[in-house]
Design a protein around this nucleic acid. Structure first.
Lengths: 298, 298
DNA sequence: ACTGATTACGCAGTACGTAATTATA
DNA sequence: TATAATTACGTACTGCGTAATCAGT
């Protein structure tokens, strides 16, 4: 049983059981993949895929049962390499950070700044996505750490660190009716709204608050990031509901901010990584900085 | 990075860092081991052992950090093989059972009997040892399941199943003064006692009960198994304190049993296996039978 | 016809063994 | 001196690539 044979199996599962495609990803020719797969099946004494003629049609139950163990093995191997890298030189390496636009733009800059000062030689890679994608990146080990607001606590195979709590706020142009007077959800619901798409930054909490009062909202427009929402609010498309901290920015030219913390429960921004992952020392420290800056923000 | 290179590292650590010895265990010559070790060190970019001239003197911190991950990897590989074996034929294989003498003799026979009827083709290997050794065997994966009374619940990397509770009892020859009259710990402490050695079958509970009353005991004789204790009790060496269920045996010829459940807290016999181990279907069922028979005993 | 998988065969890299060398107890 | 580790070199094996064959869309 060879490491590459087992990895091959995962690659096949992730590429529609296409041997040719798997071969490309592993930088070998099809015949090599075909043979290694046969050898592995022979060693295990059972087929890993049901064939339709010569094509792979579906994974066998055995194959699926094995897949999880291969994940464990790959993680162990990556950890071994990480441990060695850390012992060799704990100040170099890369940090693959998966996060959402809002966190990347409004929370992380100061964190990254402090981190870069301490570890100038660590290459930082940003990956953006929705929270579900971020979790997926962690599981596939394409990212080391994820930072976002939703979804993270629910996964028992992730270790999470609370960074900070925040609330939502309303942004409107000065001439908008909601710019003045007492705010209520009932009043707000009368106007077109712009906010985040589902799965992002507390969108469900917004939804639930309105629904709890049986209010129908006119969410004209939903985006993944605050900047887009702001732009359209400026253009007069309606009132925006955004993460409050996303307002602390120079480019708000003229928009008014109104607190909405009384209407929606606060959200928590969280950092996470996979449970049995070995954290190189600079990753460990990155998490520490994240949490520290989170506390400063509160 | 090759599987065998990583396994080699564990073998070295388990054999006093002796390359020649490791070579024997891996069925290759010394030079092969030496070279593979060098290659691994080269790939990791750091030495795994500090050398004293040409001999390995001590593992580096890196080496120790890596060792745990290698365990995970080996476990994953063993699980893969086990899954495949299970899919190929779930009725054959081996069951490596680590247990103490008392459990092997008085609790397990009926369990083994039922199991063998269902799985006549599974080879059963018994390993005996003290509870600490049993745990060690699980960790080194030299045994699949351990059954004993102590030590198991405290290990968070083991999954445990309660089998049954039991109490201690006193055995004496008919002519012994303790054969008659009301039993008290004070009275018992006046006579020479025979019981289990430390680390076995509730010995600490016996100790603690006497100490709680500030009684000094004369434990003349301690053994790992009940049979030996019985023999010496018959020879008049003193009174024996044994697991009560160990009396249900033909060969007690003449010894008297007196219940002691009021003096010592009951003990629990438990089955355990390592947390992330894949259990073949017959192992799963073996555990079920263990628990079932445990309940019958209560 | 075209895409995709298997089989056959030659070549290259890797790992082992034997043996010589060097170092330690 | 005996034991243990490294280095050198020849050999066998394993895994890849090219190419031909076979099967499905």
């Amino acid at each position: 049983m060879k490491i590459t044979q087992l990895q091959l199996l995962k690659v096949l599962l992730n590429n529609g059981l296409n041997i040719s495609e798997a071969a490309k990803q592993m930088f070998v020719v099809q015949s090599a993949v075909s043979r290694q797969l046969s050898l592995l099946e022979e060693e295990l004494g059972m087929p890993l895929f049901v064939r339709k003629g010569k094509r792979l049609d579906a994974p066998t139950p055995l194959c699926l049962d094995i897949a999880g163990e291969i994940d464990n093995m790959e993680l162990a191997l990556e950890n071994i390499r990480a441990v060695a890298d850390d012992h060799r030189d704990a100040r170099v390496g890369e940090l693959r950070l998966a996060t959402t636009h809002t966190q990347a733009k409004y929370f992380l800059p100061s964190v990254i700044n402090e981190f870069r000062e301490k570890y100038p030689k660590v290459k930082i890679h940003f990956f953006q996505g929705n929270p579900a994608q971020l979790v997926d990146m962690l599981h596939k080990r394409e990212a080391d750490v994820a930072v976002c607001t939703e979804e993270l606590q629910e996964h028992s195979d992730l270790i999470t660190h609370k960074c900070y709590d925040w609330n939502h706020a309303l942004i409107v142009p000065p001439e908008h009716p909601l710019a003045k007077g007492k705010l209520t959800l009932e009043r707000i619901a009368e106007y077109p709204l712009l906010t985040y798409v589902f799965g992002f930054t507390g969108r469900t909490k917004i939804q639930e608050a309105f629904e709890a009062l049986k209010l129908k909202t006119d969410i004209t427009f939903a985006a993944t990031d605050t900047d887009v929402i702001k732009s359209y609010v400026k253009l007069g498309f309606g009132a925006g509901i955004i993460a409050k901290m996303a307002f602390e920015d120079k480019s708000n030219d003229g928009l008014l901010l109104r607190d909405m913390s009384e209407f929606f429960p606060s959200s928590t921004t969280t950092a996470a990584y996979v449970k049995s992952k070995f954290l190189k020392s600079y990753l460990q420290e990155f998490i520490d900085i994240l949490v520290k800056h989170g506390k400063l923000n509160m």
